[in-house]
């Protein structure tokens, strides 16, 4: 079904350009994007690799730092009163607006992009982790307490598995943010990567190549999202969100 829908979409795109006689420098038909993109495939693949590294590094660092922080805030009433309001406020700041600053501070290299990807991924993960670790049902927490289990044992056997589904909401949201963050960071200041590529070819009146760049950016986003979804299926196959998909 969805494959048919994709096909219809690309066909409509292809033929509406012919029918409405849209100039090639505004919009290119998919067939031209494929042939022209193929001609430039080396550069596209190399830039996909560059952007991919930024995305994966920023995302990984965000997960590694955000989960423990979310956990700490969920379990410490002091942190909940001090750091949590701060985190919520910072969440409201459009992180992407810092991109020009980071680039002016840190230059055109890898680091500012990783930081920006990190920033746009970090907050959804923290906020969902806080929610995840602080919403164990009253019955389950009473049950755990009534067994006299240690905090650690309760965490491993009850709290952690119960929290995973909500954590994955954050992981998925962050995965969607990650490529957007990387592309914008590259628009602003870069000499390589897909964002840089899209900007340069658009400036050269080559929408065909811009679309090819967008295509690879999309693939990158889908790959990351796919990996997170795969991890979700492996880790929480019992959860209702996963069960519905695999029916």
């Amino acid at each position: 079904m969805s494959i048919a829908f994709f096909a219809a979409f690309f066909l409509a795109w292809q033929y509406s350009i012919v029918w409405f006689d849209i100039p090639r420098y505004i919009l290119t038909p998919p067939s031209v994007i494929v042939t022209k993109g193929w001609a430039d495939i080396d550069r596209l693949l190399y830039y996909t690799w560059i952007t991919g590294v930024e995305v994966v590094l920023g995302y990984a660092v965000a997960v590694i730092l955000a989960l423990p922080l979310g956990l700490a805030i969920a379990f410490s009433s002091i942190l909940r009163r001090t750091i949590y309001p701060f985190v919520v406020c910072v969440e409201m700041v459009p992180k992407i607006a810092f991109a020009p600053l980071f680039i002016s501070w840190l230059g055109f290299g890898l680091l500012p992009k990783v930081i920006i990807v990190f920033l746009v991924c970090f907050f959804p993960i923290v906020l969902n982790a806080i929610l995840a670790f602080s919403s164990l049902s009253e019955e389950l927490s009473r049950f755990s307490v009534s067994t006299g289990a240690s905090v650690w044992r309760t965490f491993v056997k009850v709290r952690l598995p119960a929290a995973l589904p909500q954590c994955f909401v954050g992981f998925k949201y962050a995965a969607i943010n990650a490529t957007v963050g990387a592309a914008i960071a590259e628009f602003i200041g870069s000499d390589q990567g897909l964002g840089f590529y899209i900007q340069i070819v658009t400036g050269n009146m080559r929408p065909d190549l811009a679309f090819a760049g967008i295509f690879f950016l999309t693939i990158l986003g889908l790959a990351l999202f796919g990996l997170v979804t795969l991890a979700e299926r492996l880790l929480i196959p019992w959860h209702i969100s996963v069960r519905h998909q695999s029916r």
Binding site: E139, L140, R142, F143, S146, P161, A162, I236, H239, I240
Partner: peptide, 14 residues
Amino acid sequence: DIGIMFQDNTLVPW
């Protein structure tokens, strides 16, 4: 050291 059966069941889905 007692056994409690809560009104809402405490089965975990995983």
